[in-house]
């Protein structure tokens, strides 16, 4: 048995060669992904890299043009609509229902499943208590602070006991202090409840400090997968190196400071390169391993049919139009 096959057997989620296009703009270009039961996997990448699209495909909110496989816990999910999938999402801006109280928001998933009123109230209160919101049950959403809304969204997703919890930039709108608390909360929840979590972020520090594994995405493709240390210390492409090395050197939570010298050297070298017009929007070179290309037939044909001029116009706007 090869190691890849063993991984697939242990995988809670298995996705193979997923292609998603919005019009003629490719959002996901042959993405494959495996998530093991009980792990916290982070999808890391810059804006427009397709990471949110991938999360939405997993939740069933977008239908990919092609998908060779998409299973959760062994069941084929390709034809299953969002409301029948065993996933729950914490949305980037939380998407809490403004016409319901915090408690009613948490109860929503139980209410649509026909759980009796008393039982769902008890479960919602337990979930809110778990996130230190026991006294906020009757609050309206606009009476809650950003951090509280965040945690209500968490409780709402948790209470349906999903097999897979999906987090879309869970800390995007929070300040530094709240982030630290929430990181600890997520970790604690994951370990105590044995949750499997896939989270999306563009923040290198978040990814490095929380994850069991990291998947780095760029331009609709997966460019590297591995443990945080591996990704940081042995970046496989120039892009990953630049992205992981950008900004201040990362502080490992458990180790002494260590300058990320290699990443820094690469970055200085990048600065001296002439600006490439096609990738001017991104401060890193967009070179990708050659074999990652060309696995998606879905929109190629459509692109080919367009005139050369228009094709170039699309190439000059590389995927920044794809919703992230």
């Amino acid at each position: 048995m090869t190691s890849a096959a063993r991984l697939r057997d242990a995988a809670l989620l298995h996705a193979k060669n997923i292609c998603l296009a919005h019009g003629t703009v490719a959002a996901l270009d042959g993405v494959s992904l495996d998530v093991r039961a009980g792990e916290l996997l982070t999808i890391l990448g810059p804006s427009g890299s397709g990471k949110t699209s991938l999360l939405r495909v997993l939740a069933g909110l977008e239908t990919p043009q092609t998908a060779d496989a998409l299973t959760i816990d062994g069941a084929d999910m390709r034809a299953v609509p969002a409301h029948l999938r065993p996933t729950a999402t914490v949305f980037q801006h939380y998407a809490l229902f403004p016409h319901l109280t915090a408690g009613a928001n948490v109860e929503y998933g139980l209410r649509v499943r026909g759980v009796p009123r008393a039982a769902r109230r008890a479960q919602a209160e337990r979930a809110l208590a778990l996130l230190r919101l026991a006294d906020k049950y009757d609050r309206r959403i606009d009476q809650l602070s950003g951090g509280e809304r965040q945690r209500v969204a968490f409780a709402r997703a948790l209470v349906t006991r999903p097999l897979l919890l999906l987090l879309d930039e869970p800390m995007g709108a929070l300040d530094e202090r709240l982030r630290a608390t929430l990181e600890a909360d997520i970790r604690a929840l994951q370990q105590s409840q044995g949750m499997t979590i896939v989270q999306v972020t563009h923040s290198r520090d978040e990814a490095l400090s929380m994850s069991d594994r990291i998947v780095v995405m760029h331009a609709g493709r997966v460019v590297q997968t591995g443990a945080p240390e591996d990704i940081f210390e042995r970046p496989s492409t120039r892009f990953v190196a630049a992205f992981m090395g950008g900004g201040e050197p990362h502080r490992w939570p458990h180790r002494a400071d260590r300058p990320a010298w290699r990443a820094h050297r690469l970055r200085r070298a990048d600065l001296r390169r002439p600006v490439d017009r096609r990738t001017a929007a991104a401060p890193w070179p967009a070179r990708l391993p050659r074999r990652a290309r060309g696995s998606c037939p879905a929109w190629r044909g459509r692109l080919r049919r367009q005139s050369a001029g228009r094709r170039r116009a699309h190439a000059e706007l590389p995927r920044h139009h794809a919703p992230d």
Binding site: A59, G60, L61, P81, A82, H83, L84, T87, A88, T89, F91, H93, A95, L96, F97, P98, Y108, G109, V112, R113, R156, A157, T160
Partner: peptide, 11 residues
């Protein structure tokens, strides 16, 4: 996003 959240929660 609210309608998506609703579907995501099983509605």
């Amino acid at each position: 996003a609210l309608l998506e959240a609703s579907a995501d929660l099983g509605a």
